[in-house]
Design a binder for these strands. Structure first.
Lengths: 204, 204
DNA sequence: TGGATCAGTGAACGTGCGTACACTGAAACT
DNA sequence: AGTTTCAGTGTACGCACGTTCACTGATCCA
């Protein structure tokens, strides 16, 4: 790659990182173009060489965040333990992955409801996609393969909703509190068992 | 009450109403003192006769919103149907009450994660209180009275979390879509049945 | 090697903001 | 009736903002 383009890429990354960092304390919707440029170490007008507006930056962050989420899921599926005890593994993976990507998960959970309309809609769309993707995975599971499509979709929605709620809690969690962390994991495990048990009963 | 004080009260209400309305489209954190004053029909400096800062206004809105919520719960408890079929009644009441108080519920769900730190913390505190209050009500229910305190608290947390999620969905729901409304109600009913069934199984 | 490209600069603009201050005039008190 | 109180006014300020425009100088290509 030409050095020119590489440098441009680096600046773009710096802007994305700056926006992600700043939005952690104040929320993306209330940070200014000039703040982002300052944090990224460029002059305000340079911003426009990379993004047409703050909205476009926001969409790029949505994309980045969901790429992180999908990578996380893909990695988790490679782990053989996941199939042995899917619920415990899922709770573990969720908490650990969110802990290591607090910035992105925090961005999604904050802007999902509080962001500008265009960012909010992009996140809703990605989450809807994600529900469908998870439904495909779930449909292959031993106990679930006999369910109707709508039931699988609904349980997938339930899982994603709970995943979002739990991710929110992990993001808010102060550092160095393994007790709280274990509590959230245990809560997540219970919720998932509850959902699965409830659905078994539901059909009987 | 002296006419003086009554007029002051009226202006205060106008400011609260203006802030609530404006925050529906843009979120409370991104509206300005001057916008609120303009919408309320007063000059910006008059704002300070009622609130020291936008943060204080935000706290007043939190208080107002949870007062609305508590009134709603109290009314629901008077209804004899609630005890006959608590789950169906709760789903019905939730959707109807949120529909009629979209502004307040929208404010809470938005600012719970996207608001300024002080507003956010106030909402979390109120929700924690609310979980404990609901736990007291739940503990009196036939099937639940034998459970341990922590289990009741946990199921209460689960109910409140799902209530918040469902309220979010109702707030986002476009007007005049009774099909969507019924879908949300049905979802809420299923989730609650799931939770209850799951807990029965859990103990066995 | 010399001209074209273009990421980043720097100055300037109009605007809306929060807040200060001195004010006014009707309601409230004595 | 005369005085005090105080909710709301109007002006003025300095500041950060988004966006414009002409610019510079290193990289790229012929």
């Amino acid at each position: 790659m030409p050095a020119r383009q590489a440098q441009k890429e680096r600046t773009r990354e710096a802007i994305l990182a700056a926006a992600l960092e700043l939005s952690q304390s104040q929320g993306f919707a209330q940070i200014s173009l000039r703040q982002v440029a300052r944090q990224a170490g460029v002059v305000p007008t340079a911003f426009y060489r990379h993004f047409e507006s703050m909205d476009e930056l926001g969409l790029a962050l949505v994309e980045q965040s969901f790429a992180t989420l999908r990578r996380m899921i893909r990695d988790a599926q490679r782990d053989p333990n996941v199939f042995a005890n899917i619920i415990d593994a899922a709770a573990e993976v969720l908490v650990e992955a969110v802990k290591q990507n607090k910035a992105h998960f925090g961005f999604v959970s904050r802007e999902r409801v509080g962001g500008s309309p265009v960012v909010r809609q992009a996140i809703r769309h990605e989450l809807d996609l994600f529900v469908s993707e998870l439904a495909v995975v779930l449909a292959r599971l031993p106990n679930i393969e006999t369910w109707s499509t709508e039931d699988v979709q609904m349980v997938s929605r339930l899982f994603v909703r709970n995943m979002v709620s739990n991710a929110e809690e992990v993001v808010e969690m102060p550092d160095g509190r393994p007790d709280l962390e274990e509590q959230i994991k245990e809560g997540a495990r219970r919720q998932m068992r509850l959902i699965v048990l409830g659905f078994k009963e539901w059909r009987s």
